[in-house]
Design a protein around this nucleic acid. Structure first.
Lengths: 331, 331
DNA sequence: CGCCCTTGGTGAAGCGCTTTACCTGAGTTG
DNA sequence: CAACTCAGGTAAAGCGCTTCACCAAGGGCG
């Protein structure tokens, strides 16, 4: 930049201010600077810029696992929005490695990034919340970190559970198995609450609501399905709280010759994979995953100055009816 | 850091060198410094560090679309490896926005990142190659950028095509439709070449090889499938060159009541989605997508010093046989 | 005519590290 | 005992920007 300034016969201040738009220049000067830049092939050094300005125009995104299609879609939407807003996106996956979440939050604290979109998938012992409160500039997405005073962005889990419950109840199901993720997470709690409420609202008489909670993985789905079969199909319908769980269960059901929806109805949650090509096409609650990613960025960058902290924002879900729910064969 | 140095009664040089491990200190001094750091809650500023050292310990990853499960898996593997090697990962999606690839490469040039893993999905007019050659520190992954003098990392497309062809030929197919991505990309060319070679090797007598080329999208898959049906099923088997294409085709086949594999056999490529749950479970060539991501990072960081440029590395593919290929009903 | 505003700049002090070149004093060695 | 190491440091010069505080000259205005 010094060279550019010299070549253009001005000071570095002028070049810098011109480049940053904080100085109007007459056409002749401007052209001299531009010519110098062109000839010297000058490119500003972002590290120096960041050091000077004290910020990086980079935001961090912490997710449990990028390969999971749900998170992948979230990341994609966030990246798009970040790019639109002139921010770079640094990506971190926790992969359930303990301490990783903490490490990434500390990175925020060290100004590595200007803000963090934080997606967790397991309960916090309070350490995370404390760290979030200390650092600021975090938006908590998808799952809650209780006690964290930060903008929060979830899908409407309760409504999702309610829609699923209503759909099952309308088909006449009275014995329903809920398969959730970790019991302490709000996605699990709220979806269950919604489900229960819907069943209570829509079904007269006695209703049986079984409940399994574990992880949002195919492995857990398989385990639950096996247990379910061992118990002799204690319910006529299953509400699987994620694509992964549903996939695991379908695998077992299929292997054991249990057909959907004749033997058991199944409704999923997320709907980011190609569920419509499954056999049968899977009815599911659709998460607003793109909106989640976009809004996360927007909220983060806009709460930069305003203190719009606190308060959670709920994004609407919808039910996508396909072919995996039918009336119970033996009611 | 100045404060830490003062509190510990040493110079900033000492603190810096101690922190960077370029100075052995007696236990007492070390403890004084550590105590000062603890008390002051000191965290080094990465921007300053980067400016001083002239590098960022961040590598960039440019992919067409993160939400695509194939790229998502690639990103996930790369991030994991980057983290293991102490590098941060900046993510950029081109989303087919023209000029984006160039923009991201220039960002490399400006030292924004130390290196770039570059995944393109469309032909280059030479501009990209030129830029890559100028900047260095790029590894080209998955699809080629012809003329770029950089380490290149592909899956063994030819072998993939060959495996698919062999499988189809062994089931007696003589009229086969190849559905590729963009015709100019090596993935398309090499897979087709492999397919053709396998057919030639395995089938005596006349063979018909139809060829459609377009994009790796469900939309293209649907379009080809419709055309295929309009033409009255001119082939008994289809080799779809990506999960997306296969999904698009299955959608149309299913909607039109064409059943797989009775009416037409189908073999896919990629195998990152839950193809095993499709109806029928889809036979496919599996890409070594995790290995691709990992190796990309390794190659990038290791070619940092060595000039191991040039030369492409091929990662092995395998065939995953499921249930979507059967002998033709009317040979 | 004197004053003030605007336009078009400038100098220099940071930003917070790393690194080079150098220094000092307590052993070690011949 | 003089010369030589070597551990244990240090001062200061960057790294390449941004920005604060100023300033000169020309023009408009009362």
């Amino acid at each position: 930049m010094k060279d550019v300034a010299f070549a253009a016969g001005v000071s570095v201040t002028t070049v810098s201010r011109f480049l940053n738009g904080s100085l109007e220049l007459p056409a002749t000067t401007r052209r001299r600077i531009e010519a110098a830049i062109g000839e010297l092939g000058y490119e500003p050094n972002p590290h120096a810029r960041r050091l000077s300005r004290g910020r990086s125009d980079t935001i961090g995104l912490v997710v449990p696992d990028i390969a999971n299609p749900f998170f992948a879609a979230l990341v994609a939407a966030a990246e798009e929005e970040a790019d639109r807003r002139g921010q770079a996106l640094s990506l971190f996956a926790t992969l359930n490695r303990p301490g990783r979440e903490i490490a990434y939050l500390r990175m925020l604290e060290r100004n590595h990034v200007d803000g963090l979109v934080f997606v967790t998938n397991h309960p916090d012992d309070g350490g995370l919340a404390a760290l979030i409160n200390r650092t600021g500039k975090v938006v908590v997405v998808d799952e809650d970190v209780p006690g964290a005073e930060a903008p929060k962005l979830f899908c409407d889990n309760y409504a999702g559970g309610y829609l699923a419950g209503l759909h099952l109840a309308e088909h006449g199901h009275r014995r329903i198995l809920f398969v959730g993720g970790p019991g302490a997470m709000i996605s699990t709690m709220r979806r269950f609450e919604g489900l229960r409420r819907a069943i209570a609202d829509a079904s007269a008489g006695e209703v049986v609501l079984l409940r399994e909670e574990g992880e949002y993985t195919t492995a857990f789905g398989r385990a639950v399905a096996r247990r379910f079969l061992d118990d002799g199909l204690p319910a006529t319908a299953v509400f699987a709280s994620s694509d992964e769980i549903a996939i695991g269960m379908i695998e077992v059901f299929r292997a054991q010759g249990v057909s959907i929806p004749q033997d058991v109805s199944l409704i999923g949650f997320d709907d980011v994979g190609p569920l419509h090509l499954f056999a049968p096409p899977l009815t599911a609650i659709r998460q607003p995953v793109r909106a989640l990613g976009q809004r996360a960025l927007a909220v983060l960058l806009e709460s930069q100055h305003v203190d719009a902290r606190l308060g959670e924002e709920l994004l609407p879900v919808e039910i996508v009816v396909r072919n995996s729910v039918a009336p119970p064969s033996k009611p």
